[in-house]
């Protein structure tokens, strides 16, 4: 049995659980619990405390597993566990919450320090009030001055087509880049 493992990460409320629920063929294992952080609890009732898990079966021998990481900082230790197990990463960033960009940037740097695996950034909540433009988010995430060449795509975590398109963009990262 061959398993492609993809991690979906991001801050609290970025849409990780929704993203996996939307595309998974199985009911996502519910690890959402009532939020204990008072600040976050004011705008979001539940958050992931363990790994969300979703699956796509391609055939009898090939499967895709998706893992959603907990968003709250105190579960950061789980990243190292996941990082060594997955083949690719999707970092979701809620563009209507600029206060979270610093956290997203921290996640990005953290991953880049540890692994060099296919990765893309998915921008969520692009239709919400106060949403930042893509170029501004790219700047805020430090993608320009870190010389990081990562695809950045808009994604509606509730829309299966949008999530599928995001995964297709991720798969493009495996294609060899033309040599110069």
């Amino acid at each position: 049995m061959e398993i492609l493992k993809i991690a979906v990460t991001g801050n609290v409320g970025a849409g990780k659980t929704t993203f996996i629920r939307t595309i998974s063929e199985i009911e996502v294992v519910d690890t959402e619990r009532r939020i204990t952080d008072e600040k976050i609890a004011s705008w979001k009732e539940n958050t992931t405390v363990a790994l969300d898990f979703g699956r796509l079966t391609l055939n009898s021998e090939q499967i895709v597993h998706m893992y959603g990481t907990p968003g709250q900082a105190r579960f950061d230790f789980m990243w190292d566990i996941i990082l060594n197990k997955v083949h690719a990463y999707i970092l979701l960033v809620a563009v209507h919450r600029p206060q979270d960009f610093r956290g997203a940037r921290r996640i990005l740097t953290y991953i880049n320090q540890r692994v060099q695996i296919p990765m893309i950034i998915g921008l969520t909540h692009t239709d919400c009030e106060g949403a930042w433009q893509k170029d501004d988010v790219i700047l805020a995430l430090g993608l320009t001055n870190q010389n990081i060449d990562l695809p950045v795509v808009d994604v509606n975590a509730e829309n299966p087509n949008s999530v599928a398109q995001c995964l297709l963009t991720l798969l493009e990262q495996w294609q060899p880049k033309p040599t110069t």
């Binding site: 492609l4 391609l58 090939q62 060594n84 083949h87 692994v115 297709l168 798969l171 495996w174 294609q175």
Partner: peptide, 30 residues
């Protein structure tokens, strides 16, 4: 059509992903 995932320093518990799986996943999603 794809770059191969080759582990360099990481432990061996991360298996390679075949081009077949990647191609099948693309076909599945489309």
């Amino acid at each position: 059509n794809f770059a191969d995932i080759n582990n360099t320093n990481i432990s061996n518990n991360q298996p390679k992903i075949s081009n077949s799986l990647l191609s099948n996943l693309i076909a599945f999603l489309r």
